[in-house]
């Protein structure tokens, strides 16, 4: 998958040029220094899903999942099942089962730990049919055990889907064989460039 746009959007008054690539079978990354606009790029991609062509994107954002009502995990999943066309039950998704969601069903979303909340966010994203999954710093605030669980899960997922991870610390990931896209500040603009084909 490749996305190439000049002057896509502005970050800190500067235009961003995008030359982004990602592939299956490996984890792909978007890296860059703090404040360069990685999350803004993530938001831009969310607002413009047509950029992915025929590929359907799904997203896992950075912020904690925090519904207005104090829902149980089972009720939150039910909302997606009932309101999103083509949504699958999380039970029908073999990958979701790797997230051990059964243990969380009777917990309130507000009572979930950081790792549990992250797993739930991923499960919510997996309920809709998708071809490419974009994650914004999925290992943030997770302990080592949960980090390893998420990484292992994403590596399994990447066999079948394209996975693109926004990160600023690649050392957490043992396998970095996929595309690495670098977002950097140039003199008058910001550039996103993939490092290898």
């Amino acid at each position: 998958m490749k996305i190439e746009i000049k002057n896509a959007f502005k970050v800190n008054q500067r235009w961003v040029d995008i030359n982004l690539a990602a592939c299956k079978n490996e984890l792909n990354f978007l890296i860059g220094p703090n404040g360069v606009g990685k999350t803004s790029l993530f938001t831009f991609l969310k607002l413009n899903p047509s950029l992915f062509g025929n590929l359907k994107p799904a997203y896992v954002g950075q912020s904690r999942f925090h519904p207005l009502s104090d829902l149980y995990v089972s009720d939150a999943l039910k909302v997606i099942e009932e309101e999103v066309k083509g949504a699958l039950s999380w039970k029908d998704n073999t990958l979701s089962k790797n997230l051990n969601l059964e243990l969380l069903m009777d917990k309130k979303v507000s009572a979930l730990s950081g790792g549990e909340n992250q797993k739930l966010k991923i499960a919510l994203a997996l309920m809709t049919p998708f071809d490419i999954l974009l994650l914004d710093e999925p290992l943030q605030n997770l302990d080592k055990e949960n980090q390893e669980l998420i990484i292992s899960f994403l590596e399994k997922l990447s066999q079948d889907k394209i996975v693109l991870i926004i990160e600023h610390d690649l050392n957490k990931y043992p396998n970095k064989a996929g595309k690495i896209n670098v977002m950097s500040n140039l003199e008058n603009r910001v550039e996103v460039m993939h490092d290898r084909d």
Partner: peptide, 18 residues
């Protein structure tokens, strides 16, 4: 009602769900 239910999950999630 569908949009409002999804929006109540948070705008981040709602935006990701289209």
């Amino acid at each position: 009602i569908s949009q409002l239910r999804l929006l109540s999950l948070g705008e981040d999630i709602a935006l990701g769900l289209g």
